[in-house]
Each structure stands twice: as structure tokens, then as C-alpha cells.
Design a protein around this nucleic acid. Structure first.
Length: 294
DNA sequence: AAATATTCCAACCGCCATCGG
DNA sequence: CCCGATGGCGGTTGGAATATT
């Protein structure tokens, strides 16, 4: 009757991914592209279910991911979109290139929800909480000051709330126009967006050239984490320069040291947000991996 | 410094939609 | 149309990191 759970097989691993598993998954996807996720773990030599692999890839390992906190404009966009779409995180995420639904959902639950509540706005309905004024623990004046400070958050929300039923489409358009402009540009520039990770053929993979042993300064961000893949991996001849704990921030790295096999229309934009084809070839070379590790 | 509480987020779970035989 | 396989989505949780007492 019911579907079998995807991880029901004995021996399948659960829990946090190790650097080695990440490595295998990245290597496999880069070599073969995204194919049947069910088959990925077997083919990649992972003791994971396909679902877990897909999730790991889409939420963490994908090369086009932006990491770090959402910017103010992104946050505002999430709020606006949530007002229109509700908890349809994937839809919301599709308007924010480089952000995953999971990331947005987490950010909403941990940050935005609180901010809205603090502002007396019901995060579910985006309408003022009826008892908010009475229940507000803080004096009105203080609240207003806070609202002023967070005006970027509240801007436009009330207006939208009044009209949202009538004007979902138009409101959606207008509410995101400002912030979307540059994002649209980014999408065009990157050639693909969050939902459009390109599949690559092995022959499209770049060839590394003149890789410095220590590239850009380690601008690792301040986030916390449990392990540092980059340190653990000890890549043989290049420095990933990222705080792996901060979610593979190496995609922001300067890729100018790589020889890139890139399409004509994208050459100016790749360094900032490299697509899949810019993964170091090193990743594809199993021998390099094993020799370079430990 | 130690204990406890809180925050945060990666990963899991279960359901639903879609597709192909 | 039915059914199984698969992918995708949203809600929830576990536990590490951080803050507070």
C-alpha cells in the first residue's frame, strides 16, 4: 500500500554528511550530471539514500548557492513573497537565486517570524495582530522607534495586506520589482538560476591551470560549524579557501586561476558565481582525490 | 568555570504530484 | 485507469554552537 521509505535498507547511513561523502557526491555529479537520484548513491559509492543525496546536493553542495545571511533586500523579498504565496518555500526560493527553500524556511522561522511578531504583525497572515497593541510588552514609543529601525522590513506590507486578494499577481510583480531587478540581472548573468542547475558533460569540465598553493586570503565567514571539510580534505594543489562549515563558501572564490570551458555568453559573469562547469577538474579525478587526501 | 537555556540550521520524515509502463 | 517509482515540497527534529545565569 504505502510507499516504502527511501532509507529503509539496513546499513544506509543517516545524519550529518562527512567530507568524504561530500567529495564522492560532488565527484559523481560532476562526472555524470544529475541523473536518477535513486541510482546516485550506488553509483557514487555512498551508503545513503537517493533522497538524502539530492537534498545534500540541492541544499548544500550545489555550486550556485549563495551562502550567508540573507541581505535586507532578500529578506524583504521573502516577506513580500510570503505575503503572496504563504509557506511555499520553493516558490519563494525560485525568486531568490542562490537560495534554497530550506534556507529561506529556516531564516523565516528563526529571524523573520520574530521580527514580524515584534512589529505586531502576524507572520501567518501578514496582518496586524489584533491584540498586538495591548500585548506589546514595550511602550508604544519604543515600539515605533524599533519599527523605524526595521522599516525596511515593514515597508509595503500593510498596503499589500489590504489588497492582496485582489491583486496577487500585480502586487507580486510590483512588490518584488525593486529587489528583483538586480536579481534578474544576476539570473541572466549566471545563465541559470536556482532551479536550473545545468548538467554538464565530462568534456565540458575545466582544466586547472597554474593553481596557486594558497590563493585568496581566507575570508572565511564567522559562522559556526562542526567540521571543516577543507582542512580535512587537504586538497592537493589548491586552496579552497572557504569555511566549509559556512556552507561551501568557496563558490564565491576567485576562479580566475582556472581555465574555463565556458559558453560565449557567460564569460563575464562566471567568476562571481560559477556554474557547475567551473568545478575544478581536480574534483573529477578520483586518483587525485585519493592521493591528495591524507 | 560550570550548568542551563536558547538559538540556529542541516537533515530527516512523510505526504503529494508526476510520469511511465 | 491503475500502480509503482521517483522527485519535490513543507513541517519537524536533533544536536552543536552560543548566550545567559
Amino acid at each position: 500500500m504505502g510507499r516504502q521509505p527511501c532509507c529503509d535498507k539496513v546499513g544506509l547511513k543517516k545524519g550529518p554528511w562527512t567530507a568524504d561523502e561530500d567529495k564522492k557526491l560532488i565527484n559523481f555529479i560532476l562526472t555524470n550530471g544529475q541523473c536518477c537520484w535513486r541510482a546516485v548513491p550506488k553509483l557514487a559509492g555512498l551508503l545513503r539514500c537517493g533522497k538524502s543525496c539530492r537534498l545534500r546536493w540541492t541544499n548544500y553542495l550545489r555550486p550556485d548557492l549563495k551562502r550567508g545571511l540573507l541581505s535586507e533586500s532578500e529578506e524583504q523579498m521573502v516577506i513580500d513573497l510570503h505575503a503572496q504565496l504563504g509557506n511555499r518555500w520553493s516558490k519563494i526560493a525560485s525568486h531568490l537565486p542562490g537560495r534554497t527553500d530550506n534556507e529561506i524556511k529556516n531564516h523565516w522561522n528563526t529571524h523573520i517570524k520574530k521580527k514580524l511578531k515584534k512589529m505586531g504583525i502576524d507572520p501567518l497572515t501578514h496582518k496586524p495582530i489584533p491584540s498586538a497593541a495591548a500585548d506589546q510588552p514595550q511602550p508604544q514609543q519604543e515600539q515605533e522607534e524599533e519599527e523605524q529601525q526595521e522599516s525596511s522590513l515593514s515597508h509595503g506590507i500593510s498596503d499589500q495586506m489590504d489588497q492582496q486578494n485582489k491583486e496577487i499577481e500585480t502586487s507580486l510583480q510590483s512588490s518584488i520589482t525593486e529587489t528583483k531587478e538586480d536579481i534578474d540581472t544576476m539570473e541572466v548573468m549566471n545563465g541559470f538560476c536556482t532551479d536550473e542547475v545545468p548538467l554538464i558533460e565530462p568534456h565540458e569540465i575545466l582544466v586547472p591551470c597554474d593553481i596557486p598553493s594558497s590563493s585568496t586570503s581566507s575570508s572565511s565567514s564567522s559562522s559556526s560549524g562542526s567540521s571543516n571539510l577543507l582542512e580535512d580534505l587537504q586538497f592537493p594543489s589548491f586552496d579552497w579557501h572557504c569555511d566549509y562549515n559556512n556552507s561551501m563558501g568557496f563558490w564565491d572564490d576567485d576562479f580566475s586561476n582556472w581555465d574555463l570551458l565556458i559558453s560565449d555568453d557567460s564569460d563575464t559573469n562566471l567568476a562571481a558565481n560559477p556554474p557547475l562547469s567551473q568545478y575544478p577538474k581536480m574534483l573529477l579525478d578520483q586518483e587525485s582525490w585519493t592521493h591528495g587526501l591524507l
